[in-house]
Each structure stands twice: as structure tokens, then as C-alpha cells.
């Protein structure tokens, strides 16, 4: 009987081996080969020695940081006030709805909005500010990336606010805390799990938004993702691309550690 059960799980186990473990192993393996298929450490040497790759990585991390920060600044108040509205589930649904629209279409919309005689420049024209180059700048990349990521930050924060026991807030008020004190000493610390989940959900993808850097950033902003895409699909230097991929995986692991560990700790102390 047990043998028969194994048969049911076999596809799932195969999936783990073939599509989770093997690809990661292969990308690490590939990173030790140069463009001619020779085993080498040169890719890592190039990565760490030529300043361009390190600069690109820092640049990518910096933009991901900015995107996450701006998104957080917009999302926290939105989640907080959304939580207090009457039909909050309906409003939340409306916040999530745009995420069901293809990302490429949203980026495409901004190509129109930001273009030389698009809506924004038209608007600026009323104030006598002549047409500005907005599309293909760092600014436009930041705006569009933030726009796309906002719902993914609102959702976890909203959920953590839902889990927050309202009597804690009432207790804090009864004990004489001001609104600000209640917020900083009670609400914010207790919703940190949601904030961290949001950071995790945004920072990592922000490192790899290559389609936005191509469509909106005009190849000025080079992220880790853009570099990987270029090495794999344009210059066909898979070894170097994999090396950057390994860097991205390491960065991802670090971020998971930084945002995940404390959550686990909190769970233990709460119980």
C-alpha cells in the first residue's frame, strides 16, 4: 500500500529534482565556464576585478532599495487607512485588481504617458514648463517600478493590520498614549512582520526587472536582471550571465535571512 502511495507523489518529487534542484545546480555549474565552454574561474575574476560589474550590482541594489522605500512610504498609510474604511475587503480587492493586468501593458501605458508630447508633458505645459525628457530616464524607471510594486506591499501590511488585536490599541489609548505614541510603540512594531514580507516581495523582484529597464529606463538603468538577460540572450555568454545569476541568488539568500529570521523568532516568543 505504501508503495502505491509513492506513485502519487512521484511527479511532485520529480518536479523538485528536475525543476528546483537541477536548474540551480546547473546555473552554478555554468558559471564556471567561459564563452568557449572551457572550465574556468575567469567569470568570477572578471566580476570582482572589473569595476563595471561591481558598480552595476551596487547600482541595482541602490535602485531596488529606492523602489522598496518609496513603495513602503506610499503603502503603509494606504494599508493603514484602508483598514479603517467600512467596506475594506472590497477596497482591498480594488487595490489588488491592477496586479491582474499584464505588467507589460502597464509599462506600455507609461510609454504613452511619459512621452515627449504625452499626458505629463501636456500637464507641465500648462505651467509653462516646456516638454521634458521623462521617458528613458532613471526617474521614469523608479516611477513605473514603484507603480507596479505598490499593491504587493499594501497586501501584506494590510493582512498584518488585520491580525493585530484591536484591544491592544485600545489598551494603549486607555493608558494615556497619544495617537502618535500608539502608532510608533504598538501598531508599527506589531505590523513589522507584514512590512518585512512586503520588503521581501518587492526588493528581490526589483533587482531583476529587465523589461522595465529596457522599455522605460532606455537602457540607462542596468540592473542585475538586465545584465543576466543581456548575457543570456544577446551576447550568448552564458557563463558570465550565470555568474551574475549566482550573485543574484546570494543576494536573495541574504535578504531572506535578514527579513525572515526575526519573524521566526517572534513566532516562538508569541506562543
Amino acid at each position: 500500500m505504501r508503495k502505491k502511495q509513492w506513485l502519487y507523489y512521484l511527479p511532485y518529487i520529480l518536479w523538485i529534482i528536475l525543476f528546483v534542484l537541477a536548474p540551480v545546480a546547473l546555473i552554478v555549474y555554468q558559471s564556471f565556464f567561459d564563452i568557449n565552454g572551457q572550465a574556468t574561474l575567469a567569470n568570477y575574476a572578471t566580476y570582482f576585478q572589473s569595476g563595471t560589474y561591481l558598480k552595476m550590482t551596487l547600482n541595482s541594489l541602490w535602485y531596488a532599495f529606492l523602489i522598496t522605500l518609496i513603495t513602503l512610504l506610499f503603502s503603509y498609510p494606504t494599508a493603514y487607512w484602508l483598514h479603517q474604511t467600512k467596506h475594506k475587503q472590497l477596497w482591498l480587492l480594488l487595490i489588488i485588481l491592477p496586479t491582474w493586468i499584464n505588467l507589460l501593458l502597464k509599462a506600455y501605458a507609461f510609454i504613452g504617458i511619459f512621452s515627449q508630447d504625452g499626458a505629463i508633458n501636456h500637464f507641465l505645459g500648462w505651467f509653462g514648463i516646456g516638454p521634458q525628457q521623462i521617458l528613458f530616464t532613471n526617474f521614469s524607471f523608479l516611477v513605473v517600478a514603484t507603480y507596479i510594486e505598490i499593491p504587493f506591499m499594501i497586501l501584506p501590511i494590510f493582512n498584518s493590520l488585520e491580525e493585530l488585536n484591536p484591544s491592544l490599541v485600545n489598551a494603549s489609548r486607555d493608558l494615556g498614549a497619544s495617537n502618535w505614541q500608539t502608532f510608533t510603540k504598538v501598531i508599527l512594531p506589531l505590523t513589522m512582520a507584514g512590512v518585512k514580507a512586503g520588503i521581501q516581495a518587492i526588493f528581490i523582484p526589483s533587482l531583476s526587472l529587465f523589461m522595465l529597464t529596457r522599455l522605460i529606463g532606455g537602457n540607462r538603468v542596468i540592473t542585475l536582471g538586465t545584465a543576466i538577460e543581456e548575457h543570456f540572450l544577446t551576447t550568448m555568454n552564458w557563463g558570465m550571465g550565470s555568474t551574475i545569476g549566482v550573485v543574484l541568488i546570494v543576494a536573495m539568500g541574504l535578504i531572506m535571512l535578514m527579513t525572515g529570521e526575526q519573524k521566526a523568532k517572534k513566532k516562538v516568543t508569541n506562543k
Partner: peptide, 17 residues
């Protein structure tokens, strides 16, 4: 793992695979 991996990593590693 696949839930948190960036799309480019999934894409690139599947391509190698």
C-alpha cells in the same frame, strides 16, 4: 524556492536546463 526566485533566475536556469 521557485516562489521567491526572481523571474530572470528561473528563466535563465530553465534555459540552461
Amino acid at each position: 524556492i521557485l516562489m521567491v526566485s526572481p523571474d530572470v533566475i528561473i528563466g535563465a536556469s530553465f534555459l540552461i536546463f
